[in-house]
Write a protein that binds this DNA or RNA. Structure first.
Length: 574
RNA sequence: CGGGGCGUAGCGCAGCCUGGUUAGCGCGCCUGCCUUGGGAGCAGGAGGUCGUAGGUUCGAAUCCUACCGCCCCGACCA
């Protein structure tokens, strides 16, 4: 491709709207332009990068035995009523009506459509297992789209679905995808981890997320430093602490203490001459619109996803103190479990606390000598708090570390949730009707690009891993008016093209500085410069974007080196 | 949706507080000259409903009200 003919609007300055590095660079390098919040146009280079990722995804999915199809983006509300998600999915589902006033939505995911297809077309156990996928634009009306391609409302996703005869067979399909996802992200040249994850609104029995490790990640992961345990903190199980209460220990009577103006755990602890871990922290959230209390030790944090799962809510939200007060008339800041007129979910650790301190549900007052079990009875008890690096690995007891990650893939074992709800069955060997055992498998194709950039950049711009680079080589012609230089540049451009290399030929009438800056910004792995060195010595300069390593070699050597290196590097990643 | 911020040329910003001529600057764009190894220089030029609608005023980018859009923090998620 000739740069002079390409719509590739790079900028020196960063648009004010961008916050994270991938968003800034995608805009500056002319990959994307925003249409409206969370909705982007892919310019030619952005599209090329997108196609690179899709291609790898397709190859690996096909290799794993999955078949590509393409489903509709527009789906009727009735289908979503069958699965129960028309009510459950919430405002993220963009709904609208057609001219007959019938309900429709834009597909945020395709369990309903694929299950409908399966019940029509997969009639016999002989057709199973079947694994179907598509690469398609999805729309989710995110509460807050942000960070460019990282969390758009419209985004490109690979979604795949497996159908099996039994739980065991479904697990085989799941493992197959688990392996395929490893191959995909390895081939993309990304540093990633598969972690145990919460199943969220898709539902199902267990799942793994594939996380690209990057500081700007929106998720936090716990990783065991000894075994291979890794999990999202939303999911990471905390080992139930040993009960080391002294059975003969004295239980004090509850006493009310005046603590005016002391709402924070630390203030109360100081005042009462105790430590935060002697205090029961009482937090109130709205679970499906109803206030619910969550209790953790004063030095712990509530993990909202765990709370949601524990109480079986569809949605748990954090609300401000005044909203809670308006709903409950309770003195926020002085809340405690004793006599609290709300459903109470309690972290397992709290149940072992002895003679502790909590709010008194009375403004300016706390209680001491509170004993769980004696003084209050919880509605739910379990693992409720956020894991920390002080906790032990749930599988081996080893030390844990925390790291940030970007979720680029998520696989779920769905079981029969959708097939039962939608009456999707097949005939088994014995002639009986059985529901499909399903799995679903997503990859944020457009997000992979953002994640790759978050992980691969420097102060000059993007550093694409070779498999994702929109062009593999950029040839700079620094002597447009010099016939010898131009002939040589054209020659190597044509030579590389002939060898099947993806080359961007910078034939613009720009000064050398601009061409160098743009080449770096775009992140193209190989740069070949034809300029004054060629005029003098008949040699070109070759530079690797990632290392900055530079060599001066002949035209022929440059072409051979590039062809060979690209060939072996891509072969290795496969 | 709650909290915060911003909307002035394609992009980045100043001007607004304290209302008063033709609304500025840098980048980019166009023309010419010049220059050619890390985003050059000179000269000339095009480009603006100051987010929208009301209001206050002799007079509004500037003050007031409402609305719209965008960005950041939170819940959500590929």
């Amino acid at each position: 491709m000739r740069y002079s003919k390409l719509l590739l609007p790079t900028t020196k300055e960063t648009p004010a709207e961008a916050e994270v590095i991938s968003h800034k660079l995608l805009l500056r390098a002319g990959f994307i332009r925003k249409l409206t919040a969370g909705v982007y146009t892919y310019l030619p280079l952005g599209l090329r990068a997108l196609q690179k990722v899709s291609q790898i995804v397709r190859e690996e999915m096909n290799k794993a035995g999955a078949q590509e199809l393409l489903m509709p983006m527009v789906q009727q509300g009735d289908l979503w009523r069958e699965s129960g998600r028309w009510q459950k999915y919430g405002a993220e589902l963009l709904r609208f009506t057609d001219r007959h006033d019938r309900d429709f939505c834009l597909g945020p995911t395709h369990e309903e459509v694929i299950t409908d297809l399966a019940r029509r077309e997969l009639l016999s156990y002989r057709q199973l297992p079947t694994n179907l996928y598509q690469v398609q634009t999805k729309f989710r009306d995110e509460i807050r789209p942000r960070f460019g391609l990282m969390r758009g409302r419209e985004f490109v996703m690979k979604d795949g679905y497996s159908f099996d005869v039994s739980d065991e067979a479904a697990e085989t399909s799941y493992k197959n995808m688990y392996e395929a996802y490893h191959s995909i992200f390895n081939r993309c040249g990304l540093k990633f981890r598969a972690v145990e994850a919460d199943t969220g609104s898709i539902g199902g029995s267990f799942s793994h997320e594939f996380m690209v490790l990057a500081e700007t990640g929106e998720d936090t992961l716990v990783i065991c430093e000894q075994c291979n345990y890794a999990a999202n903190v939303e999911k990471a199980a905390i080992v139930s602490p040993e009960d080391n209460r002294d059975p003969k220990g004295e239980l004090f009577d509850m006493v009310e203490v005046k603590t005016p103006g002391m709402k924070k755990v630390e203030r109360v602890a100081d005042f009462m001459s105790v430590v935060p871990s002697d205090i029961i922290k009482t937090m109130v959230y709205l679970a499906d619109g109803e206030p619910v209390a969550a209790l953790v030790r004063g030095d712990r944090e509530v993990q909202l996803v765990k709370l949601k799962n524990m109480i079986g809510a569809d949605e748990v939200e954090v609300v401000d103190d005044s909203t809670i007060y308006d709903m409950t008339k309770l003195p926020v800041g002085y809340l405690g479990p004793v006599g609290l007129p709300l459903k109470v979910a309690v972290d397992q650790e709290v149940m072992q606390m002895v003679n502790c301190v909590s709010g008194a549900n009375k403004k300016g007052c706390h209680l001491k000598g509170v004993n769980p079990g004696r003084d209050f009875t919880p509605d739910f008890v379990g693992d409720l708090r956020q894991i920390t690096t002080e906790d032990a690995c749930p599988t081996c007891g080893g030390a844990l570390s925390l790291t940030e990650g970007i979720e680029v893939g998520h696989i779920f074992k769905l079981g029969t949730a959708y097939s039962e709800a939608m009456n999707a069955t097949f005939q088994d060997k014995e002639g009986g009707e059985k529901p499909f055992v399903m799995g679903c498998y997503g990859i944020g194709v457009s997000r992979v690009i953002a994640a790759a950039i978050e992980q691969n950049n420097d102060k000059n711009g993007i550093i694409f891993p070779l498999p994702l680079a929109p062009f593999q080589v950029i040839v700079l012609n620094l002597g447009l008016k010099d016939e010898k230089i131009t002939t040589a540049a054209e020659q190597i451009y044509q030579e590389l093209l002939a060898q099947g290399i993806e080359v961007l030929y910078d034939d613009r009438d720009e000064r050398p500085g601009s061409k160098f800056k743009d080449a770096d910004l775009l992140g193209i792995p190989f740069r070949v410069t034809v300029g004054k060195v060629f005029a003098k010595e008949g040699k070109v300069e070759m530079r690797l974007r990632r290392t900055g390593e530079t060599s001066t070699i002949s035209l022929k050597e440059a072409a051979d080196f590039i062809v060979q290196t690209i060939g072996t590097e891509l072969a290795v990643s496969k």
